[in-house]
C-alpha cells in the first residue's frame, strides 16, 4: 500500500487528503486552511473521489502530513487498495431526493475498508437514490439506496478506462448489515481469485459472476413505508 503523495512535473508535491467521504466540519475546514497557509500550500483541488489534493513545495509537505491527524484527516492510501469511498449527499439533511441514509453508510464503509490490500485498486461508490450522482455502476462496487434501510449492490464496474464496464447488480434491496457481509465476501473472493493487477470487472469477465455472488443469508428485504409516515397518515 502506498500513500497518496505524488511528485508533480513542476517539482512540487501533491498530497491527497481524505475526509469522511468529503464531509468536513467548519473546524476541520478552517484548520486545514490555516495549516495550508502555514505550510505554504500553493493550491487545493477537490478531487473526483471527494478528497482534497494540496499542492505545495516539498519543504512544507512533511509538516502538513504530520498535522493532518490532529484535524481528523489523513493522507489517502493509494495503489492496489480499497480507495476513498465516493458517497453522494444522500441523507435526510443534505438531499431531498435521498430515499435512504447513503452518506452515513459510505462513511462507515470507508472507515472499515479504506486501505485494505486487493489485487488492483478497488473503488466504491454509494448513492442515496437511483439517480446515482456518484456513478455507482462505474465503480468496482456500487451501492444504491432502494428504500429507507435497503440497498442494491452492483459489482465489477469501472468507468476510467478505454474499455469501460458497467457493474452488474448482484443483490437487490438488502439490509444495511448485509451490505457489509457482501463487501467482505466480494473482497475475499477478489483477493483469492483476482490476478495481480486485474480489475474486479476483468476477473468477473474471466471467471463469471458466480464466485462473487452474495453468500447465502444475504436476502432481499421487504419494503415498508416509514413508520412516521404511516402514523402521520393515520393521525
Amino acid at each position: 500500500m502506498g500513500d497518496g503523495i505524488f511528485r508533480q512535473k513542476n517539482g512540487m508535491v501533491a498530497i491527497d487528503i481524505v475526509a469522511s467521504c468529503g464531509v468536513m466540519t467548519p473546524e476541520q475546514l478552517s484548520g486545514l486552511a490555516r495549516l495550508s497557509e502555514e505550510c505554504g500550500v500553493f493550491r487545493i483541488k477537490l478531487s473526483t473521489r471527494q478528497t482534497l489534493v494540496a499542492v505545495l513545495d516539498e519543504k512544507g509537505a512533511g509538516r502538513l502530513v504530520e498535522s493532518l491527524p490532529g484535524l481528523g484527516l489523513k493522507v489517502s492510501p493509494y495503489g492496489n487498495v480499497v480507495r476513498a469511498v465516493k458517497a453522494c449527499a444522500g441523507s435526510s439533511a443534505l438531499c431531498p431526493r435521498a430515499v435512504g441514509e447513503a452518506l452515513a453508510l459510505g462513511i462507515e464503509i470507508q472507515d472499515k475498508y479504506l486501505g485494505m490490500e486487493v489485487p488492483k485498486d478497488f473503488k466504491i461508490a454509494v448513492a442515496g437514490c437511483l439517480r446515482g450522482c456518484t456513478d455507482p455502476y462505474c465503480a468496482d462496487l456500487g451501492i444504491v439506496s432502494s428504500g429507507r434501510e435497503v440497498f442494491d449492490v452492483s459489482i465489477g464496474g469501472f468507468g476510467g478506462s478505454s474499455k469501460p464496464l458497467h457493474g452488474e447488480v448482484v443483490a437487490r434491496r438488502i439490509k444495511r448489515e448485509d451490505v457489509f457481509l457482501l463487501i467482505d465476501h466480494v473482497l475475499n473472493r477478489f483477493r483469492a481469485l483476482g490476478e495481480p493487477g486485474e480489475k474486479l470487472g476483468r476477473a468477473i469477465t474471466r471467471l463469471g459472476l458466480t464466485p462473487f455472488l452474495p453468500p447465502a443469508g444475504v436476502k432481499e428485504a421487504q419494503q415498508a413505508p416509514p413508520d412516521d409516515f404511516v402514523k402521520f397518515l393515520e393521525d
Partner: peptide
C-alpha cells in the same frame, strides 16, 4: 393531501414504499 403535507414538513421528494398505501 397527506403525502404533500408530510413531504413539505420533512423536505422530502420521495416517500419510499408509500405507493403501497
Amino acid at each position: 393531501r397527506r403525502v404533500l403535507s408530510y413531504a413539505v414538513q420533512k423536505g422530502l421528494l420521495d416517500v419510499p414504499g408509500a405507493s403501497s398505501l
